[in-house]
């Protein structure tokens, strides 16, 4: 398979993930969609890594995996904390960033 097909697949997965971030309001699902976007990025990185025959890209993906895990841990920690404080689990209700 040509590399470009992997890249197109990666772009598609990325946009699906982004769409999810845009239209869903449950923070757990938004985190899931972020995972989608991250794994799409990882796919592109692996495709380039194969194209260049350079394994540095694969190491990069591993690091991204770690960062994603951190993001999950902190994100879900926030979700649990919100739930404990009986806050509604809806990102539209978190408007503290409002200017």
């Amino acid at each position: 398979m040509d590399i470009e097909w992997y890249l197109v697949l990666s772009a598609l997965l990325f946009t699906i993930g982004f769409t999810g971030v845009l239209i869903r309001r449950n923070p757990v699902v938004i985190l899931l969609c972020l995972e989608l976007m991250l794994s799409a990025g990882a796919l592109a990185m692996l495709a380039f890594s194969r194209m260049l025959g350079d394994q540095d890209g694969q190491v990069m993906v591993l690091i991204v995996l770690v960062v994603a895990a951190c993001e999950v841990v902190v994100g879900l920690g926030i979700v649990v904390a919100m739930f404990r404080r009986r806050l509604p689990l809806d990102v539209d209700d978190m408007k503290e960033l409002k200017g």
Binding site: D2, I3, T15, M51
Partner: peptide, 24 residues
């Protein structure tokens, strides 16, 4: 989002990078 996908696809498929057309 669809616009983004279309743009990236154009960029990838229309790229002059010949290596993109190989399987590496």
């Amino acid at each position: 989002a669809v616009a983004l996908f279309v743009e990236i696809s154009i960029a990838v498929l229309g790229s002059s990078l010949t290596a993109l057309g190989t399987d590496g």
